[in-house]
Write a protein that binds this DNA or RNA. Structure first.
Lengths: 228, 228
DNA sequence: TTATGATTTAAACGAACGTATGAATTATCA
DNA sequence: TGATAATTCATACGTTCGTTTAAATCATAA
């Protein structure tokens, strides 16, 4: 094992793995592809990280540690500034999702590559990835859900949890950028050929998320009643 | 190749593949797992479908053919009933996403297993899957986007396309049900232990989608102007 | 019953996978 | 400079992968 770290090789591997996992998924990327693209020896991954699974975790930890700490800091500040007032829901949504989306412009923190990787991975079925992400996100998710509960005291908690879930989905899909169902037609070219595709996507997504979060609460039909 | 079809073996394979692809993804599922769970010989997949890729496509085609035809029929009916009036946006959203979500109760059309598989696959990075789904969905997507354009003439088309995209993401994530970031806490147990988890999720999701679709249009900042 | 084609079967193919090994090389510092 | 540790390297291991083959079995109908 390494006690003195060679950060050059490590980061070359992490960068290549990030890009390849984004493009082909965890199972679809081989160690030989990674080490080949990183121009390092095949054995380097096992030497520096121990295994492919541990590499995958390190790829995420490198980015998520900062992201979730930043989310905590932003929420700290929002709550401090609000005093005893509740924080505005739109500010909470921006603190969680906006902080994420603004990573797209920050190449040093992974930029679009990491964003797309994260978006895709949130629906990955691979078990150890799910368990790892749940653990990494536990603290920040609880903080933000609690903040939304206080910001929307009139909305049932279960409703808020679901809407957080839906917001996560819309965001993941948007940043994954696979566009699986995107078919090029005339009006789509017109809509997306500009360089600032992402710049314009972010306010659009934020508007959509807030609209969804603030939608009227649905009334459930009772089996033998006549609920609205 | 088969000219007389043995539908028993074929369907056993399709059912097992659907379940396993849902649970472990395309790359994470082996032919030996599939044929093992289906209790058929290993060579049966290549005999009946030709390859693993072709099997994956048939798993989807079996369900999507009906779904997208049904979506067409429902939209046909809505437009016929509306006459020369535009169809209500909420009716269009229900026709597209509600028709999908109601498959959950229809075990003969795949039920929750297929829904979760579809949700996960929409962010799959595997290239041939993306290409296949884009082709399968092309017709119905164009129809529905056109319907939304007419239903919301005051909203820019690019905005509608993006919001359709966001709605797809929220729905995919919700039905994928991986809950990657879900951490069990007290209030979550309270919110979700009931049998009718899905029954209540559907109206919640629809309310969220409509809320997002009808959100105020964001104004973009001009580089040298003072846009609102 | 027998001939014919459809289907199933066991076995094997070469390729690619993640991982491990031990020697060679490089860096560190007394 | 020489000893020690860290890192890189070529190579190989055992396994699993998707696919193919040819023989065996089954179903159908003349």
């Amino acid at each position: 094992m390494a006690e003195t770290r060679n950060n050059v090789t490590r980061e070359r591997i992490l960068d290549a793995a990030e890009r390849l996992f984004m493009a082909h998924g965890y199972e679809g990327t081989s160690m030989r592809q990674i080490t080949g693209e990183a121009n390092v020896n095949l054995a380097a991954v096992n030497y520096h990280f121990g295994s492919k699974e541990a590499l995958m975790q390190e790829v995420f930890r490198r980015r998520l540690d900062w992201l979730n700490e930043e989310r905590m800091r932003v929420l700290d500040r929002l709550e401090r500034e609000a005093g005893d007032q509740p924080v505005k829901p739109s500010a909470i949504v921006d603190a969680f999702f906006g902080t994420l989306l603004r990573m797209a412009d920050d190449e040093q923190r992974g930029g679009m590559t990491f964003l797309r990787l994260l978006g895709r991975t949130l629906t990955e079925p691979t078990e150890f990835i799910r368990a790892f992400l749940a653990h990494e996100y536990k603290e920040v998710m609880d903080r933000y859900k609690g903040a939304l509960f206080r910001a929307l005291p009139e909305v049932p908690k279960a409703e808020i949890v679901w809407r957080f879930h839906f917001m996560l989905g819309a965001t993941s899909y948007a940043i994954a950028g696979t566009d699986a169902l995107r078919v090029v037609t005339d009006w789509q070219i017109e809509a997306e050929d500009s360089v600032d595709r992402l710049d314009r996507m972010v306010p659009r997504l934020m508007a959509f998320l807030i609209g969804g979060l603030r939608a009227p609460i649905p009334q459930f039909r009772e089996p033998s009643g006549e609920g609205g």
